[in-house]
């Protein structure tokens, strides 16, 4: 029967491909499987949601052309779940982008409270739709015909994707154009999938678009992920080699402070994480040396930071020493970072 309906068959193949892609990504990426850091958890959850979406979407499309009376309940449930999933995926994506850039959980809760309300309203609408058909109705062949509330829900989904762009633009404006994060590896396949879906509603391409986008995003981010220690969240010393390549006429940071702790353990890592100024970078150079790179150069600020870290370390029974260097005007990144080797 499905061979008689090539678009539905294509959807099943594409959803199967999406599931396979996501499973491969999760199987081959130890980092994602372990998801020790918050960004990893968020990304992992998006991948899982994509798999779930592809499963229910495939199920929903597989029911087309079946007996209406027998399959209507299953079709409604699958369709409802496949409508909730994209909203959650794009919301989760927005949260992932925000957290990756700003590393602030409180910021997520403060910024996106409205989003929780919107999602809840949409879920309630979809549940009500099961009984009333307010968002869409099923025809004899179990295809759906959408009404206005459904399109409102679509707009909300696109809003989440749009907001992720704004978060990146906001970050780049504040951080003077640092080319930190490119959303396009994710957004282009997703938008392509969504556009195709809109042109041919029988063709479910959101799943495969999202899966391809996630894989491309992971590949794009991989180099950065590999530089971060999963346990501490600090960068590894390899980062310095990358930073040395920053062009000679740009300054990578104002100050570098090296903290040396003879008996370094999780305690000193927590102290350093607690004292690290916002938007600064902490690099673990070796077993006992940690390098903080921060934009500011005011000596009095550096001294407060060193005092606070030293006091807390001594209270924890740790021996710590420190030294700092400030990047001179015109000094290249390489010359500056060599001082910490």
């Amino acid at each position: 029967m499905l061979l008689e309906h090539p678009l539905t068959l294509t959807t099943l193949i594409l959803d199967g491909a999406a599931i396979l892609l996501m499973l491969c990504l999760l199987l081959f990426s130890g980092h994602l499987r372990r998801h020790k850091r918050m960004e990893g958890k968020l990304f992992f959850f998006i991948c899982v949601l994509t798999i779930l979406f592809a499963v229910v979407n495939a199920g929903s499309h597989a029911m087309h052309f079946r007996d209406y009376d027998t399959w209507i309940v299953a079709a409604k449930i699958c369709r409802t779940l496949s409508d909730i999933a994209p909203m959650l995926i794009l919301f989760q994506w927005m949260v992932f982008v925000d957290y990756t850039l700003y590393k602030s959980r409180d910021n997520l809760l403060r910024r996106y409270k409205f989003a929780f309300v919107l999602i809840l309203l949409c879920i309630v609408m979809l549940i009500v739709n099961l009984f009333t058909g307010i968002a869409y109705e099923f025809d004899e062949e179990l295809f759906t015909h959408a009404h206005v509330p459904f399109y409102v829900m679509l707009i909300i989904e696109y809003l989440f994707l749009l907001l992720s762009f704004f978060v990146i633009i906001q970050y780049r404006v504040r951080n003077k154009g640092q080319n930190f994060f490119m959303i396009f590896p994710f957004a282009i396949p997703v938008l392509a999938g969504v556009a195709l879906n809109d042109i041919h509603p029988e063709l479910g391409t959101f799943g495969i678009g999202t899966a391809v986008g996630l894989v491309m995003m992971y590949i794009f981010m991989y180099r950065g992920i590999a530089l971060v220690d999963e346990d501490t969240g600090f960068y590894k010393a390899d980062l310095l080699e990358l930073l040395k390549k920053v062009p000679a006429n740009s300054e990578i940071g104002g100050t570098g402070i090296v903290f040396t702790c003879e008996n370094a353990d999780e305690k000193i890592q927590k102290i350093l994480a607690d004292n690290k100024p916002a938007d600064s970078i902490m690099v673990q150079l070796n077993e006992k040396d940690y390098l903080l790179l921060a934009a500011g150069q005011r000596e009095s600020a550096i001294k407060i930071l060193i005092e606070c870290v030293t006091e807390e370390a001594e209270e924890a029974g740790l021996k710590i020493s420190s030294r700092y260097e400030r990047q001179k005007k015109g000094e290249s990144s390489e010359e500056f970072l060599k001082k910490f080797e």
Binding site: N275, P277, A278, D279, A295, G296, A301, C308
Partner: peptide, 11 residues
């Protein structure tokens, strides 16, 4: 003091 340092590092 940590808050002050945080703000000062941002100029």
């Amino acid at each position: 003091r940590k808050g002050i340092a945080n703000c000062m590092f941002h100029g």
